[in-house]
């Protein structure tokens, strides 16, 4: 079959964003922002014991913030999705009142970049479990770097060893909470048929490792 009328309009490249990509990515991100916000509120309650014992352990909780980056990319599969989703999610958190002030935007941008670089390293062709885990870890790693070394980072005053421990914990948390959960969610979503207009519609039947 040939698309007679389709040929008469400029054909969009497979890498460019359609309106549906933008809106769904934004909603994942904004919903992520709400979850973030709840997560930040919860952060104080849940991380208080961790904080009291050994503050770098709070890094283990950080993965929740990075879900939009990985989930957005696994669903949309267009260059920039991780960066866009995470930045929008941070904007959403800012709108709701963030304990990190406007610096939450920079954290969001960097976390998104961490995940984006991993997907870019696989030329946006691989979206399997190991890549999702790596992307989560990438986001977590950048989150840890930002928190430990940026002037606005909350852990800027930690001793070097504690910083290293914190970064390790955020990377682990990113891999598991943001990476694995997003990957599982994407497969579940693909089975429901809601991803039928996205490149990820076949995610449920893709091989796990290759």
């Amino acid at each position: 079959m040939t698309g007679i009328s389709a040929k008469q309009t400029p054909t969009t490249s497979k890498k460019s964003w359609r309106v549906v990509d933008i809106v769904v990515a934004a909603l994942i991100a904004v919903a992520g922002g709400v979850i973030f916000w709840a997560w930040s509120q919860g952060a104080n309650v849940i991380t208080a014991p961790l904080n009291a014992v050994y503050p770098p352990l709070t890094g283990l909780y950080a993965g929740g913030w990075m879900i939009p980056a990985v989930l957005g990319m696994l669903i949309i599969r267009k260059p920039g999705a991780a960066l866009f989703c995470e930045t929008v999610a941070a904007t959403g958190e800012l709108l709701m009142g963030s304990q990190y002030g406007t610096t939450v935007l920079i954290s969001g941008l960097l976390q998104g970049l961490g995940a984006e670089l991993v997907f870019a390293a696989f030329v946006y062709k691989k979206f399997n479990l190991p890549v999702a885990l790596l992307a989560g870890a990438g986001a977590g790693f950048f989150c840890g770097l930002n928190d430990s070394f940026a002037p606005w980072g909350w852990n800027i005053a930690y001793a070097a060893g504690d910083k290293a421990a914190y970064i390790l914990f955020t990377a682990i948390s990113g891999a598991i909470i943001a990476g694995a959960l997003s990957w599982i969610a994407t497969r579940g979503l693909a089975k429901t048929g809601v991803l039928s207009s996205f490149a990820s519609r076949k995610a449920a039947t893709e091989p796990v490792f290759s």
Partner: peptide, 15 residues
């Protein structure tokens, strides 16, 4: 657009 994704089988078709 029909066939706008990656040209694989399974993309939309128009005739």
């Amino acid at each position: 657009d029909a066939n706008d994704d990656d040209g694989e089988a399974g993309d939309s078709d128009e005739s």
